[in-house]
Amino acid sequence: MIVFVRFNSSHGFPVEVDSDTSIFQLKEVVAKRQGVPADQLRVIFAGKELRNDWTVQNCDLDQQSIVHIVQRPWRKGQEMNATGGDDPRNAAGGCEREPQSLTRVDLSSSVLPGDSVGLAVILHTDSRKDSPPAGSPAGRSIYNSFYVYCKGPCQRVQPGKLRVQCSTCRQATLTLTQGPSCWDDVLIPNRMSGECQSPHCPGTSAEFFFKCGAHPTSDKETSVALHLIATNSRNITCITCTDVRSPVLVFQCNSRHVICLDCFHLYCVTRLNDRQFVHDPQLGYSLPCVAGCPNSLIKELHHFRILGEEQYNRYQQYGAEECVLQMGGVLCPRPGCGAGLLPEPDQRKVTCEGGNGLGCGFAFCRECKEAYHEGECSAVFEASGTTTQAYRVDERAAEQARWEAASKETIKKTTKPCPRCHVPVEKNGGCMHMKCPQPQCRLEWCWNCGCEWNRVCMGDHWFDV
């Protein structure tokens, strides 16, 4: 396979590697080409510095992935760790964990309700045991953590790749202090920090972006993250068709209702045909949960890209028209025109101005929308079919299609509260000796007794199943 190397943020060049090629071997190839010592090179990928003893497969490097290699003399205490030698983080029983690669970060837990604080980093599902597709590297999971809308060759929703760059020099040479644990960490600028490894760059702020994971991409090709779309790892039924499908869209209502993408497309087109989208002054033209839940309008309007190009163009047109109407304007009634106009409040005669090729020149009556006339309008008909009709959803289907309910059931079956801080902690095999993952707590306690870890627990039921 081919990976592209950008040395000291210059133009990239291809390097041929195998899945079992080590990072140090990659350094040696680059060092020979650039005429520099291999031990002064640092390989940066997806916000993480890659260790010498890791392989291309370990690092989730795919065909035509772009890695950054910078030349920086080692500072005291760094060289041993980078070589894969006596790194205290690798000691058996050590409590410190390697910062998780962005290629394996899962933010789907952050669609849980606000009262489930902490689960994004504490609760991990076991539903990723799908067998890898044919042709994928051994052991590589097909679980997708992110979804994007690819405006490039795909023109559809695709699995996405999370990447990070330095907000100062805009190069992907920043190593994160810690990985993101929720969508806010990724979507809110300057929320996460790190250290830029580019020479002479003092940058410390992280800037995240997404790429389409279905095809090789260049540095400049980015895609918009659709953070309401998630892999259906909890096997929730769709609120409309009641099938279990994946991926799904999880509405931001209190129940976190789930809808499959085909039904979401149908829901949007139906509402669009009836012009029953909601115009929100802050958000724009949007839709609420299909069950009509309060405070559930979709905030990231790129989710409506699921409509496809033709329907999305209609959505944008109707949204612009609705904006004009909300501002007190009118639409030209001549067939084939429909231009938005903003006449004076007491102006009865409205002319669709033909300047700049935008208007048709038609003069019409503001009251009856017919060709302009003197005197009273002959008839004014009330528009028919403008009443909002509820999208029919079966109550039982709505009850079963809740992301929140599956989460709470998982928590109930696989977790116990920490005796000190009461945060839910998952036990997935292993011994009875637990350690609270909350940095402010870190209590060592017994899963069996529910009390602080002691010699009695150690001698009596340390390794009970």
Rank of each mutant, 00 (worst) to 15 (best):
T386M: 14
V423I: 13
Y391Q: 06
G77K: 08
E221S: 09
Q155W: 06
C212T: 02
V17D: 00
L307T: 06
D115W: 04
L174N: 02
S19D: 07
V30R: 01
P424C: 06
L107I: 10
Q317P: 01
G336T: 07
C441N: 01
A172Q: 14
Y147W: 13
C260F: 01
T55A: 05
F381D: 05
E310D: 11
V43K: 00
G430S: 15
K151M: 13
F7Q: 02
K129G: 11
V164T: 07
S223R: 04
M434Q: 06
G430I: 04
Q64H: 15
Y391A: 06
L61P: 01
E79A: 09
G85V: 11
H302V: 09
S181M: 10
V121C: 14
C166V: 00
E322W: 03
G340I: 04
N52H: 03
S127V: 11
P333K: 03
F304D: 01
T21A: 11
T231S: 10
G375R: 07
D53E: 14
D262T: 04
P424H: 12
D126P: 10
G354S: 10
P419H: 03
M458I: 15
G114M: 08
R104P: 13
Q158L: 07
V3E: 03
K76W: 14
L341R: 07
T204N: 10
Q25L: 03
C418K: 01
T222G: 08
F4P: 06
A120N: 14
R245G: 04
L226M: 10
Q71W: 05
S181P: 01
G118V: 03
V423R: 14
W74N: 13
E79G: 12
K129L: 12
C457A: 00
G340K: 07
V350N: 03
T242E: 14
P424S: 06
F13T: 05
T177R: 10
T125L: 05
N273V: 03
L283S: 11
A320G: 10
E395G: 08
L123Q: 15
L249R: 01
T21Y: 06
S9I: 02
C446E: 00
G340M: 07
M80Q: 12
D126M: 07
G329A: 04
D243W: 08
P132L: 10
T83I: 14
V278K: 08
E309T: 13
A383P: 11
K211Q: 15
S145Q: 09
Q71Y: 05
R366A: 10
